[in-house]
Design a binder for these strands. Structure first.
Lengths: 330, 330
DNA sequence: TTGAAAGCGCTAACAG
DNA sequence: CTGTTAGCGCTTTCAA
């Protein structure tokens, strides 16, 4: 069966193409009688407007691009999942592009977004991306860009991210409230701005409360390293009484070590993490964590995008406050 | 800066639009001299063809749709991640549509794929989808459909999935090899074909080997239920010596129960699962599992899709063999 | 070797 | 209230 087009409908009804077009969109100029006739036939023939023609004509599509280092990450997963839901509700489609944390691929993906004249692009940059001039170029083409999570330091762009100071502060406060005295605190790659922010807020909080706790700060790049590190500290004579994990990755290594030694939180050692929220439920008791939810962030990013698409031209930096979720491990 | 079009290039070079178009695509009719001239200017002005116009003209796009119950699932995540990589390499974009395991949403998504004249669609159906006539309609529009993972029972369609018989057989064989005698075997929703297949292969294998093991079969719908169930069985006098988990979901509940009771695999109880492969590494020792990798499945599905796009019209059912990954928990 | 022209399906300004 | 017309940017016959 060949495609049903406006032309075909028009011919069958002995109307002009424009009348049919208008009738279908409820244009006030068209008589009710005609509207009914047209709509009926369209329904019968299962007419569907040709998206390509509409795109060409209007010079934009209802597609958003999203460029992320990798989809294999609980945070991005929840972000995407949530974003797709919103997008669908508003009649937009979501196109996923992974950069593999590689700047070259990231740029290629950006180019695709430009070529395909996306309605807008969400970006979480790679850890090496410093020059964002290429991203800003899309702005000239009136393609709004919303940076989320891993955002550039550059000021004049739309950003939506987790409030890292807030998250780390909450974690420190929870440890202080539980009167922990010997705390192993494991942070991620010290080069990343996320680590810097969390670390400084964490340390400041202990100072602010005049805590006398012995806070050991360590950094690591992998689950495996965290695993080794925690084993080492748990074997010391003056054993630590709590562990703070800056990320899910670190939490996984930490819990492996705790399990191999046959220890049980919170009695043997307290555990608290900053997490997306899935991993903490894999253990018993659930891990107490500071939530950095991709869901909420996605809702916020999407709202900002809608505003930009609608013409908002000013730039905003939005932050999401975290909350403490008690799991029983601290 | 306004968009650069063929027309603009043609005017600037005093050539016709068609000549410019042909020069850009290396048409043999065009002289080398002209080609160079045109390409140079195009490069300088950063000419980019208008995708919308091309789509309209050629009546197809380089976009694949993928409809899944939810992206929040390790298996789909690895599948999508892998599929996106392949797609990008071949110049295709991937559009994600979640059905939320809801048939109505699934149908809406399908409609979108049709409306947007996707080059092809990958589908993993909801657990309730039985009527796939709507999917097959896309075939009439020459939009190939590849079903993966959760595939319909209906014969005449392209399917790519895990070999469930094989996976369950491997698990049973591993348990027999370890001489386990009292095995709690937890399966998922008994309505789903995946459960039926795995269960029958599992039971058959014990029979085939003439095993005298006491194999307790249970089914469950959630992590929480599995958690309760495992606790119950671990508290019995004649305690089980191994647990088989049909899915990651079940494995998580199982491990929670094992942890709360302070038991350590494999000495206290053996554990084996059918899994995507991420979750088993969260525990120590790693869980021994039968791998059902989304990565491999995606590569296969993509190849099949390319063939279909290229015109292959016959229907195939492809299966992926699983492998046993020793983690140390059995 | 190049150009002219038609047309993909739709929208919208303009004219009746 | 309805029709005519031009045109979005590109591809592709057909003609020169």
């Amino acid at each position: 069966m060949a495609d049903v087009t406006l032309k075909k409908l028009a011919e069958m009804l002995n109307l002009s193409i424009s009348t049919v077009s208008r009738a279908l969109k409820n244009h006030p100029d068209i008589s009710d009688e005609t509207k009914v006739k047209v709509k009926e036939l369209a329904a019968v023939l299962d007419y569907e407007p040709n998206t390509y023609a509409i795109n060409l004509r209007t010079n934009h599509s209802r597609e958003f691009g999203i460029i992320i280092p990798s989809i294999s990450n609980d945070f991005y997963q929840s972000f995407i999942s949530s974003l797709e839901e919103e997008a669908r509700i508003y009649g937009y489609a979501l196109i996923i592009l992974q950069s593999g944390n590689n700047q070259v691929t990231e740029l290629e993906n950006l180019k695709r977004c430009k070529q395909n004249r996306m309605a807008g692009v969400f970006v979480s940059i790679t850890s090496n991306t410093s020059d964002i001039s290429n991203f800003l170029k899309l702005g000239e083409q009136h393609i709004p860009i919303i940076f989320f999570d891993k955002v550039p330091a550059f000021e004049a762009c739309n950003k939506v991210c987790v409030d890292d100071y807030n998250a780390a502060t909450l974690a420190a406060e929870a440890l202080i409230a539980k009167k922990k005295k010997h705390i192993l605190s494991i942070f991620g790659n010290p080069q990343m701005s996320i680590t810097k922010k969390r670390l400084s807020a964490y340390e400041e909080t202990f100072k602010k409360y005049g805590s006398n706790a012995n806070v050991v700060i360590q950094t690591t790049n992998s689950t495996e390293e965290a695993f080794q590190m925690v084993q080492y500290y748990l074997n010391e004579k003056d054993r630590i009484d709590a562990i703070f994990c800056m990320s899910d990755e670190i939490l996984i290594g930490t819990m492996k070590a705790i399990q191999i030694m046959g220890l049980k939180p919170p009695a043997d050692v307290g555990v608290i993490a900053i997490s997306e929220g899935i991993i903490p439920t894999f253990y018993y008791p659930h891990i107490t964590y500071i939530e950095t939810s991709g869901f909420k962030l996605a809702k916020m990013a999407f709202l900002r995008m809608l505003a930009c698409v609608a013409g908002s031209s000013y730039v905003q930096e939005l932050k999401i406050e975290s909350v403490l979720i008690e799991g029983g491990s601290l």
